[in-house]
Each structure stands twice: as C-alpha cells, then as structure tokens.
Amino acid sequence: MTATLTSTKAEQPVGRRRWAGPVAKYAVYAGIVVLIVVNAVMSSTFLSLDNLRVQLYQAVPVLIVALGMALVIGTEGIDLSVGGVIALTSAVLPLYLGYGVWVAIALAILAGGVCGAISGSLVAFARVQPIVATLSLMIGLRGLAVIMNGATAKPINDSTLLNLGLTGWFGLPQMAYIGAGLVAVIAFVVRRTTLGRNLVAVGDNASASFLAGLPVRRILLSVYVISGMLAAVAGVLIAGHGAYADPANYGLNYELLAITAVVVGGTPLSGGQIRVIGTVAGTIFMQLVSATLIQNNVKNSYEQMIEAVIICIAVFIARESANR
C-alpha cells in the first residue's frame, strides 16, 4: 500500500501536469503544420520553391546561431554575445578580402572562436555568470566592430561570398546545405560523442559532474568556442546575402532570435537537455510566424507583440514539463 503511494507520488511531483510533457515535445511541430496550412489557403504562391528559398535565406543564419545557443543552454548557460560576433564578422570580412575570400572567412571564424574563448574562460575559470560574461561581450564586440570598420558600412563585391548568400544548388540556397550539414554535425556531437554527454551532465549538475571527474571547465570553454564559431559562420552568410557589411546593424537581436528558437523548440533553459531537431523546428516556426505577418502586411509592432506571446507560451509549457 505504502509502496504504491510512493510510486504514484514519484510519477507525479507537485505542480507537474501530465499534458505538459507531450505538448512541450510536439507543440512546435503542430504549430508549423497549422501555419503552413493557413498560408497555403490564403496565398496561392506560398507553397512555391521561390518562397521556400526566401524563408531559408532568412532562417538558416538564425538556425546556425541557435545550434550553438542550444549547446550553451544545455550547460545551463546563455550566450548573449552572438549578435556581437556577427557584427565583428562583418567588420573582419571586408578588411581581409584582399588576401582571398577563404582567408577572410577563416579569420572571421577564428575571431568568432576567440570571442567564444573569452566568454568561455570568464564562465569556466573566472566563474562569472554566463549572462554577465556574454552581455559584456555583446556590448563590447559591437563597439569594437564599429571601430575596426571605420566610418561607414561597406559593400561586398566578392563573388564567392555573394554566391554563398544568393545562389544555390538544385533549387535550394547554398547556405541551406551548410545549415543542414551543421545540424547533422551538432546532432552527432550531442548524441554520439563524449563531449555531448558530458555537456548535458554539466548542465544537469555542474558540481556533481566535477566530483565525478568530468573536465567541467574544458567542457564549458569548448561549448562557448563552438557557439562563437557558429555565430561567425552565420555572420559570413548574412554578409554574403546582404552584399553589405554593416557592423552597426548586422546581428542585432540575433541572440534573442536564437534563444527564442531554442526555447520554442523545447530545450529547457535550466540545462541538462538539448533538442537539436527541436531547435530546427523552433527556427522554422518563428520564421513562418514572421513570414505570415509580413506577407499579409501586418504592422511590425503587432509582429513584435505576437512573437512575445509565443515566447511566453513556450517558456510556460517548458516550465510545466520540467520535472524537477
């Protein structure tokens, strides 16, 4: 009798709702289906390859940033510096294009890695809270990028960069293939590698992981470095797509877009869990919301309000389903 009681209790801790788990897992997929159906009914051109291409151009950079963000959030951290890294990328690229486009891209990604190493070190070694460490970089990096760039934004004329942002293979943008590749790599890292398992363990309980002998600091450091490098990759694609390098405005709000995609995709902010495919779905869902509103000429202030409501709902569902 007693035993049965305890077990029921264990299954249903106080405050947990039964519906919340599956809802958190599948709500975003249902949302995607609903939005696609609604748009397909309202507009004859929505289900076209052209439209798919446009949505991919806008969603892939967010997705790439969100992948790194998901890893960081998995360790119970947060990376607010990603927008700053994108700004830095758009300052670095035009400065080094003269050495060849691949050198410039490599340097941009290296710079992203260095930024990640700085925030990672602050978090791992100096024990600064992630939100504070990356907030200072978020502000500082944009300032740095604007100074490096000089007075005005610059046009980008390099054909390789422009092709990354504008042309495709088999009807889909080049950047869609890059995004898909990175999703596969990150999914593999999370599910099949020691780093993947370790970082979830750190997110679940950092001190227990440390006592269990996991290299907690090294894990944290690598997660922020990966996030910085992914943000730089996104920055390269954004600059190529815009044919313009504007450190003052590029990457603005990307930290929020990425966090939203991760949270809407069902990854809890409390760490210990990473949903890679959920993050992809979260990105697609938010992109569809934005597309639906702009294509129907809804004022941008309403768009911001609707996105805020979606974030609140997503966090609420995620909170209800977290069984701790």
Partner: peptide
C-alpha cells in the same frame, strides 16, 4: 589591424570614401 587588406576589386566607395 596592422595587416589588413581590403578587397582591391571593391569599387571606389569601399575604402576611404568617407
């Protein structure tokens, strides 16, 4: 910063135009 090299293919508005 000491070894930057902006694209030479850039048009006149890219470098130093400000």
């Amino acid at each position: 910063a000491g070894c930057t090299k902006s694209s030479s293919s850039g048009n006149s508005s890219s470098a130093g135009s400000s």
